[in-house]
Write a protein that binds this DNA or RNA. Sequence first.
DNA 1: TGTACATCAGTGAACGCGCGTTCACTGATGTAC
DNA 2: TGTACATCAGTGAACGCGCGTTCACTGATGTAC
Lengths: 187, 187
Amino acid sequence: MKVTREQAAANREKVLQAAGRLFRKHGFEGIGLADIMKAAGLTHGGFYGHFDSKHDLAAEACERALDASRKSWIEGSPGADLETAVRKYLTPRHRSDPGRGCLFAALGSEVARQPRNVRHAFTEGLRSTIHAIAELLPGPSAASRREQAVATMAGLVGAMILSRAVDDAQFSDEILEAAAAVFSRTN
Amino acid sequence: MKVTREQAAANREKVLQAAGRLFRKHGFEGIGLADIMKAAGLTHGGFYGHFDSKHDLAAEACERALDASRKSWIEGSPGADLETAVRKYLTPRHRSDPGRGCLFAALGSEVARQPRNVRHAFTEGLRSTIHAIAELLPGPSAASRREQAVATMAGLVGAMILSRAVDDAQFSDEILEAAAAVFSRTN
DNA sequence: TGTACATCAGTGAACGCGCGTTCACTGATGTAC
DNA sequence: TGTACATCAGTGAACGCGCGTTCACTGATGTAC
């Protein structure tokens, strides 16, 4: 069954959306193409009409997801300060919904083992995110703002990862709260 | 070919060692039992004489690896201060050898998707590690030392994960250096 | 201490399953006249 | 505008492969006498 060109483009978009969500939720190796296609309302056979490989899908889906979450997190609310951004990131809501959250936190330790194109998408996404954080920071020099931004990003990502890994709800909350307290201080 | 009871115990140990290294290097889903057993000098068929499942192996191997790396990192050099510990963690050497490094950094974002026993081993390992860091910190109260310890651990883990994910060597170095500078300050 | 036998750690073939990928086919779309 | 046909997005069966797990077997170990 052929489909309108616009419909085909919309389908491709749905595949990217579903992939971005399901990769974050289950990991790159924890979800199959058939399930991703099904979540997009299609069957798996049509996949290779849109993408060359699972890795290519991963790279493109990551690029989209990185842009989208940076926009909704920081760039979407201009004028907000660091504390707002930090507290918006370190919420129980974010912790419980990796599929719609930060890609670095959801897939961070898997990225080092991914092919070149996926790692590249991450690198550029991280660059932009750190740049955006640096703009929220006070601090005497651009170099010190950037240093702070890098460390803060590392702290947020690490805190979210640890809070999700832990099997004790109280400990998990403590991690989010401690990190929020420390990383929202601009000293 | 039966084997001495001591030999069998030593073989089990070798499997745990190999598993700890290979899981950290390739991820829980990136390495198979056959390869782990081969790395331990055995064939895959004997696996279920030692462990009930791959998940059980993972849980036990993580427990061992967590204890070992905490000892060699912090508890092994008593009297060291925070800056020493932070700088020892954030090295290019550690970055390039995940198989022998920090389990949280190597597998952090995968742990949330692991079964109960693996997550539990991580939780207890993290608890001990944070406790050990808190002891290195100055600070007015135990609560504030603990808060700092949690945030510092998050920062170290996040920085290592991001520095490994990035495909640009210079950017990767910058992440380690910025985090080292910020997290070794005890303010 | 020596012998006979039961035990059991380790072997390697086999299993069933899910995965990424391929392919012949379908039938609506888009185009040429 | 209407008709005829080529195109091609999507379908579903099939492929080969690697994985976790099982199992019948082997032969050295450990034990009973």
